[in-house]
């Protein structure tokens, strides 16, 4: 698949924003290490809203005809993309009201505030599920057509949110042991789950050039693709990544998305270094951005079989 930056940013930033909002709700529900004070809550919810907005705005950049974008809310009965749009928009009133409530009452954990925070967090988590299902329902792309995709989106989104929240606590100088522990646990779970995903998609399977052309018992090879230069199909679906380079990029991804944030958070917790905490937050966003780029570039659409690939 063509790794369009617009779609990478959509799932990366909105996933992180929704994860952050859900964790703000959990932390204030259970008063984890005293809960977030009003200022910390405001900053966290604001970051969440900014992230979700970056994601939503960049998704419209992916549309070739954005004047019809409002119609994307109409087919929620069948389309996961429509459902994702509806829940993403529904997130704003609850997150926004919580922001206003905390700003004016300075009470992030009273009953009204908690209802708003939990509804916003829940809607955010539902939106992450819809985002994952956009890809997971496509039988045409073997690397996406697995329940591991929404599961990965969950742990990555929550991992980004937890890292940002822990970093925020350290920057504010508040007790952050439980926050760092939560972030490390979620990042480790996300890394393991991504490993399971890579193991899963590395096994061959799915349609071949033989089932694509119907000559199931014969060797089939392309003589001519029928076009002299690229088409929409080759531009959109033709991207590949050589195995050796994919391995290197994955190592880089694991380093930036998981190893550096965990090490930086541990260092920041021990020394109280705000710089290390910010490095952790930046690294996790960049690293999971690399993960999302790999997610797209490694997805091999079956139409490539008609352009001569033996299997996808």
């Amino acid at each position: 698949m063509h790794p369009a930056l617009a779609v990478i940013f959509l799932t990366l930033f909105s996933g992180g924003g929704f994860g952050l909002m859900a964790l703000v709700a959990v932390v204030n529900d259970f008063h984890i290490e005293g809960g977030l004070n009003p200022l910390q809550t405001l900053v966290a919810v604001l970051i969440s809203l900014v992230f979700v907005t970056i994601g939503m705005l960049s998704s419209t950049a992916h549309l070739a005809n954005p004047k019809n974008a409002w119609r994307a809310f109409t087919r929620w009965r069948t389309s996961w993309l429509a459902r994702e749009g509806i829940f993403a928009v529904l997130f704003y009133p609850f997150a926004g009201l919580y922001l206003l409530w905390v700003y004016f009452t300075q009470a992030p954990a009273d009953s009204v505030g908690l209802v708003l925070a939990n509804l916003a967090g829940l809607i955010g988590l539902v939106t992450i599920f819809c985002q994952g299902m956009i890809y997971a329902v496509l039988r045409t792309i073997r690397q996406w057509n697995t329940p591991l995709v929404p599961a990965n989106f969950y742990f990555m989104g929550l991992g980004i949110g937890a890292t940002i929240l822990a970093a925020e606590r350290i920057v504010f100088g508040a007790p952050a042991t439980a926050f760092v522990a939560l972030a490390v646990a979620l990042l480790v779970a996300a890394a393991v789950l991504k490993g399971i995903y890579y193991f899963w998609i590395s096994r061959p399977g799915g349609p071949t050039i033989r089932t694509a052309t119907g000559f199931n018992r014969l060797t089939v090879r392309i003589l001519d693709q029928g076009h002299t230069f690229g088409t929409f199909l080759t531009e959109e679906f033709g991207h590949t990544l050589p195995a050796a380079r994919a391995r290197n990029v994955k190592l880089l991804m694991y380093l930036v998305a998981f190893v550096i944030p965990i090490a930086a958070l541990a260092f920041a917790l021990g020394t109280g270094s705000a710089a290390a905490a910010l490095i952790a937050a930046a690294a996790v966003v960049v690293g999971i951005g690399i993960e999302r780029w790999l997610f797209f570039v490694e997805a091999q659409h079956v139409v490539n079989l008609y352009h001569g690939r033996p299997s996808c």
Binding site: A64, L233, V303
Partner: peptide, 21 residues
């Protein structure tokens, strides 16, 4: 053509490469 917003999603769902933006 009056409703399409050009998101490419249908072309991802088509295994036969029938749809072109």
């Amino acid at each position: 053509q009056n409703k399409c917003m050009g998101c490419n999603y249908c072309s991802w769902a088509c295994p036969y490469g029938a749809r072109e933006l």
